[in-house]
Design a protein around this nucleic acid. Structure first.
Lengths: 192, 192
DNA sequence: TATATAATGTTGTTTACACAACATGTGATG
DNA sequence: CATCACATGTTGTGTAAACAACATTATATA
């Protein structure tokens, strides 16, 4: 059901998944997730409904992949690698989450029922993986296991970013990231 | 190789042909037709080269269909039916050809080698068919066979429209059509 | 309660596409 | 002339998508 080096995958599969993701993206601009049926998605994608089930178990799986891929593409585009525990690496990750939320969730207030939680868990999980990957490639002494640090940090980042993004009179993202960094940085500060 | 009620055609076939036509359309905005290979077309369409040959014999066949479909869609959109020999029906046809040339051939001077002749024969042939179809559904006495009248008229329309379209200081299309109508109308005037 | 409507999943068969391989042709460069 | 690079067509085999059909579940409506 999953990735397998997106690049060397059958073009028909890539195209089909892309069509489904595009379809859902557009439908979400018109309707709530609850109002969107698999039928709707495949119709707009000019695909058969049975084909959908060959790729995803339900619309939530599609949404999950969509969010995940989009977020990773944003990181990729900005060359965010988390190659160390220096503040600048963390800064880039936080900024990416902030910008992603603004892009992807333009009407956060109207998207509370099923969409919000999905975005949340998916983004947090990706951030967690990015952090964990960074810790493993650049090991440092820490007050707790890398897993706990990564989990705590990723939730903190999302929580901060979400609060900022939902503020109608929010400050510029760069300014906010500096503030967030002061709060979040200490979580992964190495022992003296 | 051909249509078969576009609507009840396998979606995969419709999608493939649409992708190929889109691809060629975009490539023509960057290169000359001579510089475009089947390889280029299928690459941009994310299709296999062999698939191209399952649909078209060569890039000219693709171009032919592309022009034909686009022109017919323009007629469709304007509800041009040529339901009679009255001047207004002919006016609509001439106007459609004028607008199509302006849309489709923005840089006529740079497209002379292979592209121009193809556009030409394809559009003329479609106009001829539209006229012939109109004659058959609304028969009238004429000075010559419907075939000869239709052929002569279609070439005259294209010739006039092309001359107008290639004029950098051309008058508005509506004005030109009135003039063209005076020249072309007499071709299909019925006997007294 | 019955029943209509609509969505979800699943299955088997048919058709279209991907791909590698090969033959052929053509122009450029040594 | 050789040969390198590249484009055109074609073929056989494997895989993905289309489609109809069916069972299931849920939500209305009479």
């Amino acid at each position: 059901m999953q990735a397998q080096e997106c690049s060397k995958l059958d073009p028909r599969i890539r195209r089909t998944r892309h069509l489904l993701q595009d379809s859902l993206r557009h439908l979400l601009e018109e309707k709530e997730l609850e109002e969107i049926s698999v039928q709707d998605i495949t119709e707009r994608a000019t695909l058969n409904r049975a084909t959908f089930y060959a790729h995803y178990t339900d619309k939530f799986a599609l949404l999950e992949e969509m969010i995940r891929v989009n977020f990773l593409q944003l990181l990729e585009k900005r060359n965010v690698r988390f190659d160390g525990t220096c503040p600048s690496a963390l800064r880039a990750v936080i900024l990416a989450v902030c910008d992603f939320l603004v892009d992807f969730q333009p009407s956060i207030s109207t998207r509370q029922h099923q969409f919000g939680p999905f975005l949340q868990t998916t983004v947090i999980d990706q951030v967690r993986i990015v952090l964990l990957d960074g810790f493993q490639r650049h090991p440092v002494n820490m007050r707790a296991s890398a897993e706990v640090i990564a989990a705590t940090t990723s939730w903190a980042i999302f929580g901060a970013a979400r609060e900022w993004a939902s503020d109608s009179k929010r400050v510029p993202p760069e300014d906010f990231v500096s503030l967030a960094l002061e709060l979040i940085g200490p979580i992964l500060a190495t022992v003296a």
